[in-house]
Amino acid sequence: MKIGIMGAGAVGAFFGSVLHKAGHEVTFIARGQHLKAMRENGLTVKSDQEIMKVDGIFSDDPASLSDSDIVLICVKSNDTEETAKNLKNVLREDTYILTLQNGVDNEEILADIFGKNRVFSCATYVQAAVQEPGVIQQNGEFSLVVGELESSALESAQEIAAALKDSGIFAKHSSTILYNKWKKYIWNVTFNPLSAAMEASTGDILDQPNLRALAEKICAEVISVGEKLGYEFSSYFKENIFPNAEQARNHQTSMLQDRLNGKKMEIESLCGYVVRKSRELNMSVPTIETIYHILKYLESSDLKKTK
Rank of each mutant, 00 (worst) to 15 (best):
V45C: 08
H34W: 02
D60C: 13
A84G: 06
D55V: 08
D48T: 08
M52R: 13
T27G: 14
S47Y: 01
R39I: 04
S68F: 06
L43G: 07
S59Q: 03
S47R: 03
T83A: 15
D55L: 11
L72S: 07
K46I: 12
T83K: 08
N41R: 14
T83G: 14
S59V: 00
A84K: 01
K46Y: 12
N41E: 12
R31T: 00
S68P: 04
L35H: 06
I29Y: 04
K46T: 11
K46P: 07
F28V: 03
G56Y: 03
A37E: 00
E81V: 12
I57K: 15
H34E: 01
S77A: 14
S47D: 03
V71R: 08
E40S: 11
N86Y: 01
L72K: 04
D48Y: 14
V54H: 09
H34R: 07
I57Y: 14
D48W: 10
F28C: 05
V45Y: 00
P62K: 01
R31Y: 00
S59Y: 01
K76R: 11
T80Y: 01
D60K: 13
F58H: 11
N86S: 13
S77L: 08
D79E: 15
G32K: 07
L65M: 09
M52K: 13
K85M: 08
Q33E: 15
T44H: 14
V75N: 06
D48L: 12
D79N: 10
M38Q: 04
A30M: 05
S47L: 02
G32D: 05
H24P: 05
I51A: 09
N86Q: 15
I57V: 15
S47G: 12
P62E: 00
L35I: 07
T44I: 13
A63C: 12
D67A: 15
I57G: 13
V26G: 06
Q49C: 14
G32N: 12
S59N: 02
L65G: 02
I29G: 01
D48V: 10
A30H: 01
L87Q: 00
I73L: 11
D48P: 13
I73T: 02
Q33V: 10
G32S: 10
V45S: 07
A37H: 00
N41P: 08
T27F: 10
S68V: 02
S47V: 02
S66A: 15
G32P: 06
I51C: 11
K76W: 07
K85I: 06
V75E: 05
S68L: 03
F28R: 02
C74D: 06
C74Y: 00
E25A: 13
T27E: 07
S68E: 02
P62G: 01
L72M: 09
S47W: 00
L35P: 05
M38P: 03
R31I: 00
G32C: 07
K85Q: 09
K76L: 06
E50I: 13
V54L: 13
G56S: 11
I51S: 11
K76I: 02
H34C: 06
I29W: 03
R31N: 03
K76F: 09
T80G: 06
D48A: 15
K53T: 14
R31K: 08
S68D: 01
N86P: 02
F28D: 00
D69T: 07
S59T: 05
R39V: 04
L65F: 05
N78S: 09
N86R: 11
S77W: 00
D48G: 14
I57N: 15
T83L: 07
E50V: 12
D79W: 13
T80Q: 04
I29F: 08
K53E: 12
K36I: 07
G56R: 05
